[in-house]
Design a protein around this nucleic acid. Structure first.
Lengths: 114, 114
DNA sequence: CATTTATATACCTTTACAGGAATATTCCGA
DNA sequence: TCGGAATATTCCTGTAAAGGTATATAAATG
């Protein structure tokens, strides 16, 4: 499974998405995450494990606690993936699109006539 | 389930991701999608249905065929979601982060001493 | 009209995964 | 060293979702 897909499926789970959004404002401890999101502690731990394996978070042990923190890389990669679709909404694309469609039609006709 | 989560789970499935990437280069018919990705036709149809319900594609019937085409909106929303994490990798954040962590520690100590 | 082509749906089976509860582990402090 | 707090792991169960096959639907074509 490619990197982008890994990132996407990690983020696709609603509670994990909320965890990531929480961590946007700074690192947090497992307990705080569970508290703020109304999750059970085991659930929080399990979600953090998935996020960790996807490289979306890293953990820094501090005595009893484990502090989880966002890692930029997967989000950066996701950003560039989305960016590769930019021309979709950068205007005059619809017209270009129609033009290409028309071209395709003509070519197809030509080939049919052979 | 919020819009972002809908988009993410639609894209999290590898074959659907490939479909979206295919459509980046222009609209396609169900059969062409199935062919190019080595999918069964029913599978292609089902994935396209999910993408459609997520608003990621729209369909234009043309006689026998149905032409599927990317819709910008969900990708735009995904983009701004990812953008909201930009400061993560725009430098000097790591230091700010450490500073905040230290602050938290002090506050916690103060509260423990009450 | 009958047939063929393109697509969608239904049904079945298997698998992945999320939540809940209980338990293991690790580390601190008395 | 013992107890308690914070966290991870395990086991169980239910459910959603993906693939495969067969079938339904719709439109073109002869």
């Amino acid at each position: 499974m490619g990197g982008t897909t890994t990132t996407l499926s990690a983020l696709a789970e609603p509670n994990r998405l909320r965890i990531v959004e929480l961590l946007r404002d700074g690192p947090l401890t497992v307990g705080e995450i569970a508290d703020r999101l109304g999750l059970g502690q085991p659930q929080a731990s399990k979600h953090l494990r998935v996020l960790s394996e996807a490289g979306l978070v890293e953990v820094h042990p501090s005595a009893n606690r484990r502090i989880y923190k966002l890692r930029p890389q997967p989000l950066q990669e996701l950003e560039s993936w989305v960016e590769s679709f930019r021309r979709l909404w950068e205007e005059r694309f619809d017209r270009l699109d129609d033009y290409l469609l028309e071209l395709q039609g003509k070519v197809r006709k030509q080939e049919d006539e052979k």
